[in-house]
Simulated scan of single mutants.
Amino acid sequence: MTRNITACAEFYRSALGFMVDGPMLGLGEQQIWLQAGTGADYPAARASNDPWFQHLAIVVNDIAAAFDHATRHGATAISTDGPQRLPASSGGVTAWKFRDPEGHPLELLQFPPDATPPCWQGRDGLFLGIDHTAIVVAGTQASETFYRTLGFERAAQSHNRGPAQAALDGLAAPHVLVTALRIPGQAVPHLELLDYLTPNAPAGTWTTSDIAATRIVMSGTQPLSRDPDGHCIEGVSLAVP
């Protein structure tokens, strides 16, 4: 959801390399759609473990250059001290979390040269595409059970903690259980569940029209619904008339 579709699209174009076609934005083979929100603005009090937190992770070829470019075009940092290299136990990626001008969280992601997934190898350009969307959940089991009913399966799981994770999240001593879910046969984009064991996610509610109400859009016929934590899922028909 966005308060201003034109201004929001311009940020994603200029700062992150998206192609713009009205409310539809494309990067590589992935797309997002902008919808006008009529509810509350993104909350002023915000953190990486907020229950409404949902970000897009954008794969880049050169995270130092992408960080500099996004910052010069209006991105505001969530992470402290710039991009962070996570330990091998957390995937060994280099990442940086930030927000767009309306408050929506995003992430830049660069894989190590010797551990780049096949789907991201050999691609030119600075900004390559969307690897996943990540959502904060109150409990992994309940959320994983829900998403399995939509066809997802577990792809990986890790416990992320330590100084690099703290700097990435902008939180003191976080311990987050990260569970990657995917649709069978589809490497990207996938879904990550972020279960903050410490610090625990604060309580919070939001409506489906609030600016914070990012939606996961799937092929299918299911109506707009909400997962156990309130994140929105919307089914769309991809059939050609």
Score class of each variant (00 low, 15 high):
Ala166His: 08
Gln186Pro: 06
Leu177Asn: 10
Pro184Thr: 10
Gly170His: 08
Arg182Ala: 10
Gly204Met: 03
Ala172Ser: 08
Asp195Val: 00
Thr207Trp: 10
Asn200Phe: 11
Ser209Glu: 14
Leu171Trp: 05
Pro184Lys: 13
Pro184Gln: 12
Ala201Tyr: 10
Thr198Tyr: 09
Ile211Pro: 11
Leu191Val: 11
Gly220Asn: 08
Ala203Lys: 08
Ala203Met: 03
Ile216Lys: 01
Arg215Lys: 15
Pro202Lys: 15
Met218Asp: 02
Thr198Asn: 07
Ala167Arg: 15
Thr179Pro: 14
Thr207Leu: 10
Ala167Phe: 04
Leu191Gln: 06
Leu191Gly: 05
Arg182Asp: 04
Asp210Gln: 11
Ala180Phe: 15
Leu191Glu: 03
Ser219Gly: 13
His175Val: 14
Thr214Gln: 11
Arg215Glu: 09
Thr198Ile: 03
Ser209Thr: 13
Thr214Gly: 03
Gln165Asn: 09
Thr221Ile: 04
Ala187Arg: 15
Tyr196Asp: 00
Leu194Cys: 00
Leu168Asn: 04
Asp169Phe: 00
Val188Ile: 13
Gly204Asp: 01
Glu192Tyr: 08
Asn200Ser: 11
Trp206Gly: 00
Val217Gln: 07
Ala173Thr: 09
Thr208Val: 15
Leu197Tyr: 04
Met218Asn: 02
Ser219Asp: 13
Leu181Glu: 00
Ala203Ser: 08
Met218Glu: 04
Pro202Glu: 08
Thr205Met: 05
Leu194Gln: 06
Glu192Ala: 05
Leu181His: 03
Asp169Arg: 05
Val178Gly: 00
Ala173Ser: 10
Leu194Val: 02
Gly185His: 15
Gln165Thr: 15
Leu181Ser: 01
His190Trp: 07
Ala201His: 04
Trp206Phe: 10
Val188Ser: 14
Ala167Tyr: 07
Asp169Gly: 00
Gln165Phe: 14
Gly220Lys: 13
His190Cys: 09
Gly204Arg: 06
Leu197Met: 05
Ala212Trp: 00
Leu193Cys: 09
Ala213Ser: 12
His190Asn: 13
Pro202Cys: 11
Val178Asp: 01
Thr207Phe: 04
Ala166Thr: 05
Leu197Thr: 03
